[in-house]
Design a binder for these strands. Sequence first.
DNA 1: GAGTGTGAACGTCTTCACAGCA
DNA 2: TGCTGTGAAGACGTTCACACTC
Lengths: 227, 227
Amino acid sequence: MDQGSPPTVAVPTHPVRRRTAIPEATVARLPLYLRALHALGESGRRTVSSAALALGAGVNSATLRKDLSYLGSYGTRGVGYDVDHLVVQVSRELGLTQRWCVVLVGVGNLGRALAGYDGFASRGLSVAALLDTDPRLVGELVGGLVVRHVDELDAVVSATGASIGVITTPAGAAQQVCDRLVRAGVTSVLNFAPTVLNVPVSVDLRQVDLSVELQILSFHEHRKTRA
Amino acid sequence: MDQGSPPTVAVPTHPVRRRTAIPEATVARLPLYLRALHALGESGRRTVSSAALALGAGVNSATLRKDLSYLGSYGTRGVGYDVDHLVVQVSRELGLTQRWCVVLVGVGNLGRALAGYDGFASRGLSVAALLDTDPRLVGELVGGLVVRHVDELDAVVSATGASIGVITTPAGAAQQVCDRLVRAGVTSVLNFAPTVLNVPVSVDLRQVDLSVELQILSFHEHRKTRA
DNA sequence: GAGTGTGAACGTCTTCACAGCA
DNA sequence: TGCTGTGAAGACGTTCACACTC
């Protein structure tokens, strides 16, 4: 996807490319494996088979084995995977062995939910700053952080070295906030506002629309009633 | 997928099957089209081309045309699609022309965010009840609804005729809540708790893990630093 | 000319099935 | 024997390219 690859047998342009690139679908499942592995570790399991781990992550065991094989051969035939070792490997692959600072813009209920979410801190992600435009919120203490005004965005990003921005503002403000984030130096954006955002190609963007999920369920409910 | 289809030319077992079943990937995009169409409608547009609508929804225009062709031929060659008409067609396909009642369990920040989300009411989805176990929350007014105790779940589902349940509890409580929802008669579940849930095959289940998205971004950030 | 609808090509993802190793 | 690692097959999804229509 980076270099236009010829339609013949894939010859790496750069001979010392680690392994084959990890498929996006695999990347999206690694966090699920990590979650399941943490749960297993806490329950005292030292080792786990692909079947058991797949169950805990809610995927097919063949899918899991193939996914893990992209990272390397970390299993033992006849035995399974060492839980602790696999946690390290998956974490490393996801870049969670280093801390990523996150700035969050929009301190509504969703913003608060994310700011107070344990799942981040326990992984390598820490919410370093909360920003909003509402003067009534600025200065308030939310999840141990003082809410700052959006105008301080540049200063905040510089000071924290944040590279990831989360947008939990209303849809109308999202593009403007996004532009500011990008200008401040953020290179990845997670958008919860129900709008399509435009970013430079160098910036990674992910969109999450909570209402989409419910509408998909509506479709399936609808289908049931006319079967 | 319902009937085991022979590997030869697909002959419908039931001759009066409406059209070909709509792919899941298409279903997942229909809400995006609907959102873009509503935005266009509010800005006064009467008609829209596949290119323009695709831009507003953040997808490729060929993908959009193919998606819409699954619903029928609602476009006019050389012109485009009638905005209002398409809103009706997409809404109908998603089952949003009827109201679906949703019960939400877990009135934390995320629960409140969802309860107060405009995007539901404006579509066919209405949050009919909020439930929690915390006695301090029970009785409180949140988004115009009085929070009820989870023990009232059966009564609430019966009274509202709710068929969709949303779980925004901590992970530890999710499976138990899910079981209760299913026993109460809910046939679709949307789970935000970071755990894999087990449900009967007759129940539709969707999982959303907010931390997964950030971990995916972490992966991409990590990849940038070693390029 | 403008823009939809769609076969065909292409790419990606999943699953099977089994060789190979502890 | 038990379970991983992986080629091969198949299902699925996307994109191209163009015939067809207004």
